[in-house]
Structures are given as C-alpha cells and as structure tokens.
C-alpha cells in the first residue's frame, strides 16, 4: 500500500477545502439555517408534530442527508474532474498508485468534508431546535456510509463527465429531486396511498428514513433495509470505479 500517495492526495484535497472555506462550509450552513427558518419556523408552526416529533426536529435528518448527498457528490466529482479538465491528472495516472489508493485519497477526502459538514449542520440545528439522538452510533454509521457512497458516486460522475454541464446534471436533475421527494421534509404518511407506493422506489427515502430512525426511532422503512441498501449501493459504486480504472474509461486513452 502506497500510504504516502494516499496521504498526498488526501491532504491536497483537504487543502483545497481550506482555500474555499466559504463555499465549502459557510454557504451550506447559511442555506441550512434558512431551511430551518423557512421550514422549521414558518411552516413548522402550522404543523404541530410528525410521528411524535416537532416538525423542526423532524426535518433535521432530511437536511443533513440533503447536504451529505449534494456535497459528497460535488466534492468528489470536482476533485477528479478538475485534474482531467486542466490536465494535471497525468500525474496520478503515471504514479505508482492502485485504484484503491486513488479512491482512498480522493473519496476519503470528499467524504471527510461531507462528514464535517454534516456535523456542523447538526450543531447548527441545535441553535434552532432541541435535538435528541437515540442511536448516535447508528447515526454516525449512516453519515459515514452515505458520505462514502455518494462520494464514490460523485467520483464516477467526475470521471464520466467531459464538460461542466454533465458535472451538474446528476446533482441538480437527479439527486435534488430525489431528496425533496424522498421524505426529507415530510412523512410519506402525509401522501396519498398511490404516491406512498411510488416513493418506495426512491432510494433516498431509505437513507433519510434510516438516519431519522437513528435520531427518533421513527422510520418509513426498516432500519436494516436502509443499512443493507446503502451498503449494497456503496459496493456497486466501488465496483464501477474499479471497472473504470481497470479499463481506463475516460481516463486513459
């Protein structure tokens, strides 16, 4: 294992975050605070409780999940897309590193940033609503798995994309709608029966539900189903990354 290479990539990526602190941390925190003000205070005052939890507290797992998904994808996709775009990827491709080491460096850094962001958002939430976390270990496990998995997805996206438009297609046209329609801000019980069934096909529902269970022990689907789903998706994404590097897809000519 080339640990020096893993650390070199990891530190390089983390340094990029430090240079873009406002974009990486401050902006998501402000936007999340706005969600709390609009959804929690304005709308939440008209919705008393969901599943025995105040609406403001109910949306916290959804907000964390929204940020984890969006930022994991954008962190990792940008991390590999930019070297491709400016041409510096030659160095990684010609270095004595395996795919696993490259993934550990890039995806590890992207996931770390997302986890830090998730925890900051959690801390921000405590300024607006009293929070309780019934299963903190499960909560951290979910945050960890989700960050890794969607960083892997972002990495795939960054390799696949050959222009900036493609880079933004998946987060804006696929992930955002899935998050908003995946029970982040409402319980599926509030939907008509038909749409409740449709929502079950939304993979984000399983993530939000699982994370929410770790907070309040309320969920739309069984926690084990959520855990198995995210683990399976993580393995699928990792397999795709391995395949991309093995075949040189959009990396090596």
């Amino acid at each position: 294992m080339n640990f020096y290479a893993v650390m070199a990539i990891y530190k390089f990526e983390m340094a990029r975050t430090r240079r873009t602190l406002v974009q990486s941390i401050v902006a998501p925190v402000i936007s999340t605070s706005l969600y709390f003000i609009v959804f929690g205070a304005a709308i939440g005052s008209r919705i008393t409780e969901v599943g025995g939890v105040s609406y403001g507290a109910f949306i916290v797992p959804g907000l964390i999940m929204l940020n984890l998904l969006m930022h994991s994808i954008s962190n990792a996709s940008f991390a590999i897309y930019m070297p491709k775009f400016v041409g510096t990827v030659y160095e990684v491709l010609s270095a004595p590193v395996s795919t696993v080491e490259v993934v550990l460096g890039y995806v590890g850094a992207a996931a770390t940033k997302s986890i830090i962001l998730g925890l900051i958002i959690l801390a921000t939430a405590t300024f607006f609503i009293p929070l309780r976390i019934e299963h903190p270990v499960i909560m951290l496990l979910f945050v960890f798995l989700t960050s890794i998995t969607f960083s892997l997805l972002g990495f795939i996206l960054g390799i696949w994309a050959d222009n900036f438009e493609k880079l933004s297609i998946v987060p804006s046209l696929i992930v955002t709608p899935l998050v908003f329609l995946g029970g982040s801000f409402y319980s599926t019980d509030m939907l008509p029966p038909f749409w409740q069934s449709v929502t079950l096909f939304n993979p984000v529902l399983y993530l939000v539900s699982g994370l929410r269970w770790s907070f309040y022990e309320i969920s739309e689907v069984n926690i084990l189903v959520s855990l198995v789903s995210i683990t399976a998706f993580m393995l699928l994404c990792f397999s795709i990354v391995l395949y991309m590097f093995k075949t040189g897809y959009k990396l090596r000519t």
């Binding site: 080339n2 020096y4 290479a5 650390m7 070199a8 990539i9 530190k11 390089f12 340094a15 160095e91 990684v92 270095a95 004595p96 590193v97």
Partner: peptide, 12 residues
Amino acid sequence: NTLVFSRGLFGK
C-alpha cells in the same frame, strides 16, 4: 506544496 504532493504521490 505541489512538489511535496508529487513526492508523496510517488511513494516517497
């Protein structure tokens, strides 16, 4: 920093 990165990347 870019030199430090390169050295690490190549396993040194």
